[in-house]
Design a protein around this nucleic acid. Structure first.
Lengths: 222, 222
DNA sequence: TCAGGGCTGATTGTATACAATCTTAGTCTT
DNA sequence: AAGACTAAGATTGTATACAATCAGCCCTGA
């Protein structure tokens, strides 16, 4: 029953985490033969795993030329952040309308945990980051829109996490982020959808403007 | 050079149009063997084609049990429309900011064509539908956000087109749609991003509310 | 020295064969 | 008669082999 997942799925999972964690650098080649040597099995499941990665935009495949880990330009990253900004604001609005009281209570609990971990200063960047992801994840799920959840968690978030170490956002300001999270939850709790959306938009906007500044200065240089 | 596309790609294209046009009914099974008999070749390319369809959410694949053409519930369709509403409004806002004057001029030209075809009453539902798609497509492209373009055109639109014959929207009111299109283009031309977004939101909202009404009455029935 | 063509090696695309799993029909039990 | 179990058949997952294509290198000629 737990062995229900196919070999291709397992390799896909392994490769996904490897790419997201940066163990496989952007631009590096993924030859099918290499994967066979590393993970065992035959080429067929490896091809399937690569195709699934391609579907999630984690690798780029060129016919007869192989697959490479995706390497995004700043412009492409800006595109992704723009879309994420819009979709996650939307998710927050819907969450304010559709989350159950129990789910909101859980959100409060999560915030309390974060607050404690920050206060104790045990919560280093890593914990804060995981907590941040968890927070956003719950709100997305609270939107009760399955497709929205799929798009944000299945297609955009891997990329965002992958490039997060570059962007240096929402990790250097844990306290401020926590306060923003608190206000968002308050808005959701008050069922104020418009305010919740606005606050989430602002919360994410910082990353985007940061990115656009870098994009502008890079264009100025060239 | 034109033969550069692989067999899997060709089968994928064929199947995509077949599904979108309704020649393959939602829920019908896609066995690999059947595809081999219909399109020739061997199972390997067929598997790849099916996987690409799965990536675009046009089929659902269950391990060891095969692939079926996706069959969406009204609730899932609502989710998709909600996301489309948000993304396409966003696209319209960005288009107002980023489209070139030449592209806007082309939009006006497109509107003139539609007006003529409606006035001559040669433009039956089919032409109007294609024209409508073209209009929306150009605005999406005008957003200059490649990922947004990918998501709307590559992932959502096939589904929307597939179920459009059910929803009966934006085909029975060609004149009103045209007028709404004209106002949208005027807003874009005036570089009024907020207004353009608002108008597009209203323009698409009709389909969504229609869908939600049907969803509500279905839930009331059960 | 450099541009261009062709060859070799490697890699991907495709075909076929085998193994594992699911589905379905039938039978048996309660 | 309804439901569960079993076995046969079919279908998918995997492995291996072959063909087609591409990348890199050497060689040739101006």
């Amino acid at each position: 029953m737990s062995d229900n997942q196919t070999l291709a799925d397992k390799v896909f999972s392994e490769l996904t985490t490897a790419i997201v964690r940066g163990e496989l650098r952007p631009g590096s080649k993924l030859s099918e033969q290499t994967l066979v040597e590393r993970y065992g099995g035959s080429r067929a499941p490896m091809r399937e795993a690569i195709q699934k990665l391609e579907a999630r935009h984690l690798v780029v495949r060129i016919p007869h030329a192989g697959a490479r880990v995706v390497s995004l330009s700043l412009a492409e990253l800006r595109d992704i952040y723009e879309v994420r900004l819009e979709l996650e604001s939307m998710a927050c609005r819907l969450a304010a309308q559709r989350m159950t009281d129990a789910e909101i209570a859980e959100l409060y609990g999560l915030l309390a945990e974060h607050e404690a971990s920050i206060a104790a200063e045990q919560g280093q960047a890593y914990y804060q980051k995981a907590g941040d992801l968890d927070f956003h994840y719950r709100i997305i799920k609270g939107s009760k829109n399955h497709r929205l959840h799929q798009m944000l968690c299945g297609e955009l978030y891997h990329i965002v996490r992958m490039y997060r170490y570059q962007t240096s956002t929402s990790t250097r300001r844990p306290l401020q982020a926590l306060q923003e999270h608190q206000r968002i939850v308050e808005a959701i709790s008050a069922r104020d959808a418009e305010l919740a959306e606005l606050l989430m938009r602002r919360h994410i906007q910082a990353s985007l403007t940061n990115l656009e500044n870098r994009l502008a200065e890079e264009e100025g240089r060239s």
